[in-house]
Simulated scan of single mutants.
Amino acid sequence: MRSAAWIGGREFEIREGPEPEPGPGEVRVRVRACGVCQTEVHIMDGLLTQINLPSMMGHEFGGEVEAIGADVTSLEVGMPVACQFGAGGYADQAVGPAERLFPLPDGVPVQHGALVEPMACIVAAVEQAELPMGATALLTGAGPMGLVVLQLASRSRAARVIVSEPNADRRALALRLGADQAVDPGEGHLEEVVAEATRGAGVAVAFESSGQPAALADCLRSVADGGSVMMVGVHPNEARIPLNLYDFHRSRLRLLGIWGGGRDGFRAAAQWLPHLELEPLISHRFELADIAEAFDVARTGEGLKILVGTGLC
């Protein structure tokens, strides 16, 4: 069995090892796709808390049940699943607790199982945002996370979603996937767009998914009194924004960080898979042996979701 270990800098080592055997209550999964997470890129580049080396990363993955340990009755060999093992997805196979596997609905491509982990975070963000019925929402950042936020928000309670995104291709895709307006924040008129769309009141909820401090500041300036800002994108350790605490207090704002979705979020995200347009969000596919190249592409920010796996190309 092959696995990719991060050994420091921008280097990975492809290792060969024995096929893992599932113990009682465990399942072995044949990994088909693992998503490159921007948090992993930040860790590699020294922008977040460092981890011990070598590291077996890869927490966004899915595949097919290949072998079942004793006492597992809820899964069958060949079943496509999303995995909540926390790591180990950059490999041919992975073993983990059966309770951390979530079957994919019929007809869903097995590669889309790699999208369930980030989608679980987004499900949590949309649920905890408590969007009022018919509300206007703002989304900053139309990357893969943001484009799922857009689809979930517009399919739940939001009557109108405004997207702020500097990349023209991503703005066009956001409009195709349901955004009512897509604005280039570099043109400096986001607050005017929000004011016009909400008759000066501001949006009920803003979702920050870019991981950029300036975008978070835009969100805080754009929400209505009593509104909420949901931090979906991960910001580097050193990221800071100026915050007028009096205005924040007086306006009764809520700023909530979203980190993980738990088992309920995983389960809900898996059930959403057939109802969302996800294939346009996958921009690159790499074989496991080319994982370093996959991370180089992710680092440029030019693509959307990047998958690493076996038989993808």
Results as ranks from 00 to 15, higher is better:
A195H: 00
R171F: 01
D296A: 15
E11I: 09
P22D: 06
E13I: 12
I7M: 07
S3H: 10
A124D: 06
M1K: 04
A217H: 10
L281W: 03
A215K: 01
P274C: 09
R155N: 10
A182E: 03
S251E: 15
V232Q: 01
E40P: 03
T49K: 12
A174T: 07
V234P: 05
G262F: 06
A91W: 00
V194N: 07
E277C: 08
A168K: 07
H235V: 08
A82V: 06
A179D: 01
M79D: 10
L177S: 11
L273F: 02
L175W: 12
R15K: 12
D290K: 09
E287I: 04
V194E: 09
R254E: 11
R160M: 07
R2P: 09
V308G: 14
E117Y: 13
T73V: 05
A289K: 12
A239N: 00
L307H: 15
L288T: 02
V81N: 01
T49D: 13
H235R: 00
S283D: 03
H42K: 14
A215F: 09
Q128P: 08
V77H: 02
L304R: 13
R263Q: 10
G261T: 08
Q93W: 14
E293Q: 12
I241V: 15
M56F: 13
G143P: 12
E293M: 06
I43Y: 04
G134T: 03
A5H: 06
G23R: 09
F266S: 11
G141L: 14
R15W: 07
R30S: 13
V297T: 13
G107M: 12
A172S: 01
A91Y: 02
A153W: 00
A182K: 05
G178K: 03
A159R: 05
V203S: 12
P18L: 03
S55A: 15
R250A: 15
H59T: 07
R15E: 15
T49G: 15
R28C: 15
A87H: 13
G88Q: 01
A174W: 09
P166L: 00
G178A: 04
V148K: 02
Q111L: 13
D45A: 14
A159P: 00
P280C: 08
